[in-house]
Each structure stands twice: as C-alpha cells, then as structure tokens.
Design a protein around this nucleic acid. Structure first.
Lengths: 206, 206
DNA sequence: ACCTGAACACCGTTCAAGT
DNA sequence: ACCTGAACACCGTTCAAGT
C-alpha cells in the first residue's frame, strides 16, 4: 500500500550489525530486522538469498578492522598480531565470536578466509610445506574462535557475578590467557619447522 | 484424554540421540521429539528444564564411549589418545561435533568437563603450573571441537561431490590432518615445559 | 508422578502481485 | 528494481487441569 523505503545491501548490514550489538544474536532475526527497517520480512530476500548469507555479511563487517600484517615482520609476529586482531574484532560486538564462528563453519565469511590465507603464508615462511601450512593456519583459527567464543560467553554469564579474586595474572587477564595458548601453538610451529627463522619465544612462564 | 505412555529420562535421550543421527541437528526439535515419543511437547518439560539441558544430555550420551586414559602412560600419549577418542565419538553421530560444541559453550556437558580435567592433569605431568595446565587443556578442546566440526560439515557438503585427487596423505586423510594439528599443540607443550618427560614427537614431516 | 490441551509469542521462507 | 500481503510450515515454552 504505502511506498516502502528502498534499501541498499549495506544499509541492511548496518542495521543488522547494530541489532546484534544492542540485543545479541538471539534477537537478530529476519523479522525483527525487517521491522527495524520499516519493511516487510520478504523484502530482505530480495537482497539476500537467506539468513546465513546475511549473517555472513555481518561477519565480514565485524572483521573489517582486521588488517593483514605486513610481510616484512617475522612469521611468528605476524601470526600473533593477526590472531590478536581477529580476537579484538570479535570482542568489539556482542556475540561477535559466536556469530563469526557459525559463519565460518558455513563458509560464509570472506574476510576470515583472507585471514586464513595470510596465516598460511606465515606458516610457509616458517619453513612448512603448503599442506602443513594450511593445517597450521586452520588450527590457529579454531583456537581463536574457540577461545574468544568461550571468553565472550563467560563475560555475559558473570556480567554482575562475584569475580573470585585469583592470584596470578594468567588466572584472570583474558588477554594474557589468550596469548598463552597462541604462543603454545606458535612454539609448536617453531618446534616442528626445520627453518624456524625467528627466535622461538618461550610460551609464557611456568 | 488417552492415558499417555510414561517415559524415563533415559528413554527420551535415546530417542533424541537416534533422531539426531537419522535426520541431523536441524530436525532435533522438542516438538518433533515429542511426536516421535507419542507425547505432547509440554511433557518433555517435566523431564528437562529446557532444550539446552536436553541437548546436554544427548552430548553426554555421545561422549559416553570416551574413557579417560590410564595414568601410567606418558602425558603426551594421554593427550593424543584422549583427543582422538573425543573426535571418534563426535564423528560417530550426525552433527555430533556441532551439537557438543554448542553444549560445551553452554556449560551443559559433564563428560567433556571430565575430559578437560584429565587433559589438565596430563599437562601438569608435563611440568606445567596449574593455571597453564588448564589453559593448555582448553586449547586442546577448542582444537578438537573446531577441527571436527569443520571436518564433519565438509563431509555433508561433498557427500556426493567430486573429491579432487590430491597427492599427499595429509591433503586428504582427515585422521592424519587431525593428528598433525594435535602434535603441533603437544609439541608446543613439550617446548614450553621445563620437564618434558616424553620424547617430543616431531610434528609430522615437512 | 507424569501427562494433556491449549495457548502465547514467535520463527525463516516463498511468491504472486503491486509500483 | 524493489517491495507488499499473505500464506506455509513450523518453533520453544508455560501452565491449569486431568489421571
């Protein structure tokens, strides 16, 4: 009846991303998004084939700040920097890790695929074969997604819970915890590689 | 009106597990399960508080064959054996990895928590501090869940797809690929530990 | 103790038809 | 090109009431 407002793909992704950050992944539904855009649910299906594809676009939006590390840096530093940048991007949005995990599993995130490529290149620079480099890159991504999804869900669970006072920094500081596992992996790469160019950094103090 | 059949918790989990394996996680709904049990949807809520809890019970059922490795074996062998056993269990059911991943994230799987404890003990045996042992165990679990979910979703995607003939075994054999990443982690632990009791096995050939 | 009936408040997706 | 209207085929959860 009324002439509805026309939308570009990017505007829809804007609102979807905002909806995610404001209310969480459970409230990011096609119907809710349509209502927020003053549009009928069916309209969204002119722009996106299905919900998975829309969520993939939101995932890419979340990962937008992740820039690929310069090739001059040593391979181990590139791995750490790239993985840390991905974690930071995921943490910047409510349920970011959960959403991107699902999109990655569904093969709907191009930017994470780019990250995979650059991690593979870093592993190759460590002296690994192409096949092993790919496996290493995937292992790193599984870790980043798994760790961050876990971290983020805990954040929600004890949003106002009594945080038990622990002693060591590694017991509480999530960034330190993240880097421990990351350096465990990087250390494994250095250990497995014939040509471990950079000094294999010790995987945190024991 | 009619007297409905009475069910024990375990019978409900039986049917849910069967439903999962036969039709996949998308068809494992409370309504569908109720219908299969000749019962009204509401009946399930007498046995389980919500769907998450039911899925947690199914996850524990899937992980049932995972037995905790004997303490006599070297720590690295215990890690490899335990992680491989978890993967095998997940692969034995349609969408097993995806379901257990979700349950683990929601804190609804007791058996995976037991696995975490035993992996932590193995890391401690490698000479790590309690905090680092916990971090290492979690890193291993993130890897197992991430790798296996990925593997399993690919299995479905190219169920009848042309499998491109690759050269190396590592490019095709999922078990070899799994063990590569696993030994990368274990190698990292050996590398990070002051007391690396077992011979650090080389992380696959380059 | 265990279940029914019936409702509440939603979902994703499709598609002829409109402008 | 972009959207509406309306339908199809579902969801998880609650709860008074029944046996």
């Amino acid at each position: 009846v009324h002439q509805a407002r026309r939308h570009a793909r990017s505007e829809i992704v804007d609102k979807a991303t905002q909806l995610l950050d404001d209310y969480g992944i459970a409230d990011l539904t096609m119907r809710r998004l349509a209502k927020e855009l003053n549009v009928t649910p069916g309209a969204l299906y002119w722009h996106f084939a299905n919900k998975q594809q829309l969520l993939g676009a939101v995932s890419d939006r979340i990962l937008d700040p992740v820039t690929i590390a310069a090739l001059e840096a040593p391979w181990s530093e590139r791995m750490v920097a790239t993985c840390s940048a991905v974690r930071d991007a995921l943490l910047a949005y409510t349920d970011g890790a959960e959403l991107v995990s699902a999109s990655f599993a569904a093969g709907q995130t191009q930017r994470l695929t780019q990250v995979l490529v650059s991690l593979t290149a870093a592993a190759a620079d460590a002296g690994m074969s192409p096949v092993n480099s790919d496996l290493t890159a995937r292992t790193l991504i599984y870790y980043v997604l798994g760790f961050t999804a876990d971290e983020q869900s805990r954040l929600q669970w004890d949003a106002a819970g009594a945080l038990d006072d622990d002693q060591s920094v590694l017991a509480t500081d999530p960034t330190a915890r993240f880097e421990f596992g990351l350096r465990l992996l990087v250390g494994g790469v250095a250990h497995a590689s014939p040509r471990a160019s950079s000094e294999p950094q010790s995987a945190a103090q024991n």
